[in-house]
Amino acid sequence: HNLTITQGKLFFHYNPKLCLSEIHKMEEVSGTKGRQERNDIALKTNGDQASCENELLKFSYIRTSFDKILLRWEPYWPPDFRDLLGFMLFYKEAPYQNVTEFDGQDACGSNSWTVVDIDPPLRSNDPKSQNHPGWLMRGLKPWTQYAIFVKTLVTFSDERRTYGAKSDIIYVQTDATNPSVPLDPISVSNSSSQIILKWKPPSDPNGNITHYLVFWERQAEDSELFELDYCLKGLKLPSRTWSPPFESEDSQKHNQSEYEDSAGECCSCPKTDSQILKELEESSFRKTFEDYLHNVVFVPRKTSSGTGAEDPRPSRKRRSLGDVGNVTVAVPTVAAFPNTSSTSVPTSPEEHRPFEKVVNKESLVISGLRHFTGYRIELQACNQDTPEERCSVAAYVSARTMPEAKADDIVGPVTHEIFENNVVHLMWQEPKEPNGLIVLYEVSYRRYGDEELHLCVSRKHFALERGCRLRGLSPGNYSVRIRATSLAGNGSWTEPTYFYVTDYLDVPSNIA
């Protein structure tokens, strides 16, 4: 807008934040220059609390790290170098490059900038070799853009010569660093050979998330399962459950009422301010606690030095998902009996873990797994792929695949051998790939016309006998059925096997 004052003059007093240069501009645009008398524009009460600059400061050096910015700028000295009290560095987070010096300023003089007072450097006698002032900004957020400017702080001049310097606002972004852990990993099994893994992005990506790394490792069953005799009275049979499938998407929606109208769909109840505040506090606490764990609990591995020492970490090797089922080394339970199943799973520490690289999504279907087997899954978020990966501390989750139908069934015939004193040795093959492992066998036998009897055969007993022995049988026709019990439950009964026990007292003698 054009402003013209045809008559009258300007009068400025007691404006401590208004620089004289701005008042002189007002004289020019209003056409009143030359009308004012000496005392109409006070030299001592206008701009006496402001830094009124008329020179431009330029930054000469900028260096960044993930949490620091090192700045240096060209030296500046007023005509009387004693008038320079120091520099004021202003900075704040700036997602967009549209910041002005006066953003967030209120009537009390406060604003949204963080201000650092910096002492002037030592003055050199040689004007050509003056030290460049600077400042190291610490405690910054990774991968965050900051708006920065600097200006001088000078003393009051009796001659009211307006001098000083100020830089333009520059924008500097800190470097990326390792992201925080992925949030809320959930693993479920939808079949006997697959596990579905879902997660949420890290709360602090500290860069642009480029991919996720998912490692999985087959877990050995508890050692007590191999040692305890679950045929003993009072000892509860062990059981394991597989990871249940995901709930429906509708039930997972946030901010939804727990109660549904019987007449149909209901609208979600909005969260109160107290609920939102509580969630923010919980989120802040979780982030602080995660940072504490990362800094205190997890110790970084030592990389190899120039002395030739090897990095103890196993090298990563990509495998196809079809090879995942046989990740671990199978060892027989008892070496003397080769027909026992290889369900003991000690994992070799030198073995390469299978892994998958996930790009542009937060889910993965891990296939080719062994049925009813526990897996430990390790999830890392990465925001750099080359020249070397920059990934987060791992988040861990466990899951067990679903049982395989008929995996616990005894394959092959049940054979028998009759000894003296009416002892019958029953023999059968253990299931080759049971659900988890076989903890015991149930032997059901009966003599024709009598009630059915049951015998429990422990895992250890089966390994020693290759089956079991029935003792003290009365003469007669017998039928026997056997079924295995694994961590997933009972298998199917075998087809009945028949044998006849004679009275050993009636056996004919070869003595003449």
Score class of each variant (00 low, 15 high):
residue 203 S to P: 02
residue 204 D to T: 03
residue 204 D to W: 15
residue 206 N to W: 06
residue 208 N to F: 06
residue 210 T to I: 15
residue 212 Y to F: 14
residue 212 Y to S: 05
residue 214 V to A: 06
residue 214 V to R: 00
residue 216 W to I: 09
residue 220 A to N: 10
residue 221 E to S: 14
residue 222 D to P: 07
residue 222 D to Y: 11
residue 222 D to M: 07
residue 225 L to E: 12
residue 226 F to L: 10
residue 227 E to G: 14
residue 227 E to D: 07
residue 227 E to R: 08
residue 228 L to P: 08
residue 228 L to K: 09
residue 229 D to P: 08
residue 230 Y to Q: 12
residue 232 L to P: 10
residue 233 K to R: 13
residue 234 G to C: 13
residue 234 G to R: 12
residue 236 K to P: 12
residue 239 S to T: 13
residue 239 S to H: 09
residue 240 R to N: 14
residue 241 T to N: 10
residue 242 W to G: 13
residue 243 S to N: 11
residue 243 S to E: 04
residue 244 P to R: 13
residue 245 P to K: 12
residue 246 F to S: 10
residue 247 E to V: 13
residue 247 E to F: 13
residue 249 E to I: 06
residue 250 D to P: 09
residue 250 D to N: 14
residue 250 D to F: 11
residue 252 Q to S: 12
residue 252 Q to C: 13
residue 253 K to P: 03
residue 254 H to M: 10
residue 255 N to V: 05
residue 255 N to Q: 12
residue 259 Y to W: 10
residue 261 D to K: 08
residue 262 S to P: 13
residue 264 G to R: 12
residue 264 G to I: 12
residue 264 G to L: 14
residue 265 E to V: 08
residue 266 C to D: 13
residue 266 C to N: 13
residue 267 C to H: 15
residue 268 S to P: 13
residue 268 S to Y: 04
residue 269 C to Q: 04
residue 270 P to M: 14
residue 270 P to R: 09
residue 272 T to L: 09
residue 272 T to M: 11
residue 274 S to H: 11
residue 274 S to A: 04
residue 276 I to G: 08
residue 276 I to F: 09
residue 276 I to P: 05
residue 277 L to N: 14
residue 280 L to R: 11
residue 282 E to L: 10
residue 282 E to C: 11
residue 283 S to R: 14
residue 284 S to D: 13
residue 285 F to A: 14
residue 285 F to L: 11
residue 286 R to P: 04
residue 287 K to F: 14
residue 287 K to Q: 10
residue 287 K to W: 15
residue 287 K to L: 05
residue 288 T to S: 06
residue 289 F to S: 07
residue 289 F to H: 05
residue 289 F to Q: 05
residue 289 F to P: 06
residue 290 E to K: 06
residue 291 D to I: 08
residue 292 Y to V: 10
residue 292 Y to L: 07
residue 294 H to S: 03
residue 294 H to T: 02
residue 296 V to F: 03
residue 297 V to N: 08
residue 299 V to Y: 12
residue 300 P to Q: 12
residue 301 R to Q: 15
residue 301 R to I: 15
residue 302 K to N: 09
residue 302 K to L: 10
residue 305 S to Y: 09
residue 306 G to D: 14
residue 307 T to P: 12
residue 307 T to Y: 07
residue 308 G to W: 07
residue 308 G to F: 06
residue 312 P to F: 08
residue 312 P to L: 15
residue 313 R to Y: 09
residue 313 R to G: 03
residue 314 P to L: 06
residue 314 P to E: 14
residue 315 S to Q: 10
residue 318 R to A: 11
residue 318 R to W: 15
residue 319 R to K: 12
residue 321 L to G: 06
residue 321 L to N: 13
residue 322 G to H: 06
residue 325 G to F: 12
residue 326 N to L: 15
residue 326 N to R: 08
residue 328 T to V: 15
residue 329 V to G: 12
residue 333 T to A: 15
residue 334 V to G: 11
residue 334 V to T: 11
residue 335 A to D: 13
residue 337 F to W: 11
residue 338 P to I: 11
residue 339 N to F: 11
residue 339 N to E: 11
residue 339 N to I: 13
residue 340 T to Y: 12
residue 340 T to F: 12
residue 340 T to S: 10
residue 341 S to F: 09
residue 342 S to E: 05
residue 343 T to M: 07
residue 343 T to F: 09
residue 343 T to H: 11
residue 343 T to G: 11
residue 345 V to L: 13
residue 345 V to A: 09
residue 345 V to D: 12
residue 345 V to C: 09
residue 347 T to A: 12
residue 353 R to V: 12
residue 353 R to F: 04
residue 353 R to N: 14
residue 354 P to C: 14
residue 355 F to I: 12
residue 356 E to D: 08
residue 356 E to Q: 13
residue 356 E to A: 13
residue 357 K to L: 09
residue 357 K to H: 03
residue 358 V to A: 10
residue 358 V to L: 05
residue 359 V to I: 13
residue 360 N to E: 10
residue 360 N to K: 14
residue 360 N to M: 05
residue 361 K to L: 08
residue 363 S to C: 13
residue 365 V to W: 03
residue 366 I to A: 05
residue 368 G to H: 03
residue 368 G to L: 06
residue 371 H to E: 08
residue 373 T to Q: 15
residue 375 Y to R: 01
residue 375 Y to D: 00
residue 375 Y to G: 01
residue 376 R to K: 12
residue 376 R to A: 07
residue 380 Q to E: 06
residue 381 A to V: 05
residue 381 A to L: 01
residue 383 N to S: 04
residue 389 E to P: 14
residue 389 E to S: 10
residue 389 E to N: 11
residue 390 R to K: 06
residue 392 S to Y: 01
residue 394 A to L: 07
residue 396 Y to F: 14
residue 397 V to R: 11
residue 397 V to D: 03
residue 397 V to H: 10
residue 399 A to Y: 06
residue 401 T to L: 03
residue 402 M to F: 15
residue 403 P to H: 03
residue 403 P to D: 05
residue 404 E to K: 10
residue 405 A to H: 14
residue 406 K to A: 15
residue 410 I to A: 12
residue 413 P to I: 00
residue 414 V to N: 01
residue 417 E to C: 05
residue 418 I to S: 11
residue 418 I to Y: 06
residue 419 F to R: 15
residue 421 N to C: 03
residue 423 V to D: 15
residue 425 H to N: 14
residue 427 M to N: 01
residue 429 Q to S: 15
residue 429 Q to G: 15
residue 433 E to M: 06
residue 434 P to Q: 09
residue 435 N to H: 01
residue 435 N to W: 00
residue 437 L to H: 04
residue 440 L to P: 00
residue 441 Y to V: 06
residue 442 E to A: 05
residue 442 E to Y: 15
residue 444 S to F: 11
residue 444 S to L: 05
residue 445 Y to N: 03
residue 445 Y to R: 03
residue 447 R to C: 06
residue 447 R to G: 02
residue 452 E to G: 09
residue 453 L to R: 03
residue 457 V to F: 09
residue 457 V to Y: 07
residue 458 S to D: 04
residue 459 R to Y: 08
residue 459 R to H: 15
residue 461 H to N: 06
residue 463 A to V: 10
residue 464 L to H: 14
residue 465 E to P: 01
residue 465 E to N: 09
residue 466 R to M: 09
residue 468 C to S: 03
residue 470 L to G: 00
residue 471 R to L: 10
residue 471 R to F: 14
residue 474 S to K: 09
residue 474 S to C: 09
residue 476 G to I: 00
residue 476 G to E: 00
residue 476 G to W: 00
residue 477 N to A: 07
residue 478 Y to C: 00
residue 480 V to M: 13
residue 480 V to F: 07
residue 480 V to L: 07
residue 482 I to N: 00
residue 486 S to A: 07
residue 486 S to R: 02
residue 487 L to I: 05
residue 487 L to P: 06
residue 489 G to C: 02
residue 490 N to A: 04
residue 492 S to M: 11
residue 492 S to E: 11
residue 493 W to R: 05
residue 493 W to S: 09
residue 494 T to D: 01
residue 495 E to T: 11
residue 495 E to N: 10
residue 496 P to A: 15
residue 498 Y to S: 10
residue 498 Y to L: 05
residue 498 Y to T: 03
residue 498 Y to E: 07
residue 501 V to Y: 08
residue 505 L to I: 10
residue 505 L to S: 10
residue 506 D to I: 10
residue 506 D to Q: 15
residue 510 N to S: 11
residue 510 N to P: 12
